[in-house]
Simulated scan of single mutants.
Amino acid sequence: MGQLVCNGAMLKCSFGLAPGTLLVLPASQVMTAVPDANIMDNKPIVNIAPFGMCTSLANPLVAAATAAALGVLVPMPCIPMTAAPWAPGSPTVLLGNMPALNNASKLICTAGGVIEICMPGQTTVAVP
């Protein structure tokens, strides 16, 4: 059984050079000690903080800087590009009429990265 994810969870992107943070607004009005997340807490900058520098060649900034450096990979500032919700989410627990976010969920960045939850922000509430 997974852990319920909440505000302040630590995130990791496969192409990011630094950890990020999940910021959850209290829109669903469900809280443990802080607001709890659902699969729709996927908005860049609003919910998903940048991961320092990006190394994905699918990121237009990285591709342009790498081309200018004659093919030598040049990391550029991360700007998360997430369009789809977190997947899979909790199959049985709803927060704000959407599946709750658990620590097994992943989020895809259109620059090619996979965003994972390293630390869910709390360790006392479990969800399937």
Rank of each mutant, 00 (worst) to 15 (best):
M40E: 14
C118A: 15
P88R: 09
A65S: 05
P120W: 03
N42Y: 03
P120L: 05
I108T: 12
T55Y: 04
P19H: 11
P75E: 04
L4K: 07
M40P: 10
I39S: 02
I117H: 05
N59E: 01
P75F: 06
A111T: 14
L11H: 11
T110M: 09
G89C: 07
C13P: 08
L107N: 00
V34M: 14
W86G: 05
V46C: 01
P120A: 08
V127G: 01
L22P: 04
E116I: 10
A33I: 14
P60H: 07
V114M: 13
S90D: 06
P26W: 02
P60Q: 08
A64Q: 13
A27T: 13
T55C: 06
V93H: 00
P60A: 06
T21H: 10
M10W: 12
G71R: 12
V24T: 01
P50K: 03
I45S: 10
L17E: 14
G89T: 07
I48R: 00
I117K: 03
P85H: 00
A64I: 12
P50T: 04
P19K: 11
L11G: 09
V93N: 05
M31H: 15
T92E: 12
M53H: 05
C13G: 12
T32E: 13
V34N: 12
P75S: 04
T82I: 04
Q3F: 14
D41L: 06
E116R: 07
C109H: 04
N7I: 00
A27D: 15
L17W: 14
C78N: 01
N7R: 01
L95Q: 00
A68I: 08
S28M: 07
W86D: 02
T124K: 12
T21L: 11
C118R: 11
